[in-house]
Design a protein around this nucleic acid. Sequence first.
DNA 1: CAGATAATCTGACGCCTCGTGAGGTATCAG
DNA 2: CTGATACCTCACGAGGCGTCAGATTATCTG
Lengths: 211, 211
Amino acid sequence: MSQTLAIDGRPLGRRAQETRRRLLDATYELVQTNGIRDVRVVEVARRVGSSPATFYQYFRDVDEAVLVLADEAADEIAPIAALLDEPWNGKGGLETARALVDAYFRFWDDHRAVMRVRNLAADEGDRRFRDVRNRALGQVTDRMARNVAENQRAGRVPPEITPYSAAAAMVSMLERMASYHFDLEPRGVTRADLVETTARILHHTVTGRKT
Amino acid sequence: MSQTLAIDGRPLGRRAQETRRRLLDATYELVQTNGIRDVRVVEVARRVGSSPATFYQYFRDVDEAVLVLADEAADEIAPIAALLDEPWNGKGGLETARALVDAYFRFWDDHRAVMRVRNLAADEGDRRFRDVRNRALGQVTDRMARNVAENQRAGRVPPEITPYSAAAAMVSMLERMASYHFDLEPRGVTRADLVETTARILHHTVTGRKT
DNA sequence: CAGATAATCTGACGCCTCGTGAGGTATCAG
DNA sequence: CTGATACCTCACGAGGCGTCAGATTATCTG
């Protein structure tokens, strides 16, 4: 993000920055409402009152615009991951776990459409999306693994558990629940239930402590 | 699946059945290699040596073909879900958990490309894909919830946990790990580690027992 | 097995989006 | 106000979409 460039390599002036921003926002809206597979460059352009050719000045294709959005979203993970630096063992440990889950859910609520595309593209093998995902998830996974390892050394977590695997499993659970919760809620589970239960599973898996 | 029909409602004869099957298989291959967003009906047709018009006799669009594949895959879940009917509390409980995780991973290894599309489409709100997903995941989730509830009644699982939420969280973990494991393995975690760790988290969350 | 009938397939077409390059319009410095 | 630069668009060839009328292939009947 140090210096955004147009597709031909020139740096962007004020007007161009604004156009690019509006294109990004319009892309987000369309991905959200139509789903990634029904986003037409023509429509993104129309929505910001410009032409398709303009879009291609800033992005090679729709994916690249979404990649930028995913990259921006990744920046918001830091404060969430920081919740794993607080002590999970003591009194407020469970409360911190709750805060983590809640923050993660909110993060997804804000970026759902983009996160879905990021995950699909990453899963389908797209390198750029994998890298963005790793940059985001790595912050959480690494800290979780470290915490598990500590508690394992203290004998609270069984030795058969691999800290990194456990961290990956917990992040998987978090991500999917965050992505999924609003599909569950109509079926009689409240968001509060989901947060509480998820937090407890995390808390136990990290600390090995009974709750 | 009782009686498959063409798009115009006529039932299918032998030749048509075969054509449809080959179209489905070709669709699968292309989704797998190109990703869903780069599947061209033209190419599916070419691959089975027929014309695009033929494809449209059996499926309204590529999605519909993938939906059929997802539906077929859902049928393979039953024996996996059945592992949750075995006792998880006794001696072999942990081993059953391992078997479940392993089976789930293998299921995804076989159907990864289709499962990804199913989940994307379901998340994006497509009703048909949601229903297929619920049919598949429901089998697992319901049984898990029942098991958690039992162990909760026996006092081993804390009362603050909602059985259905816990089941959803576990299924989320399972699904995502199954989808994800081959992205983790190059980073120094073995599949065996992933299975073992995931199984232990599941086992504890279901039974509340120390492992 | 011929001829009729039904089932299945395809050629060909109009429509739409893609992505590009040449040229037009806004903006800014002096 | 004028030129220079930054930004944008027009217009177009290429290619996939989805349809329908008609050709081709299978099946049935006597």
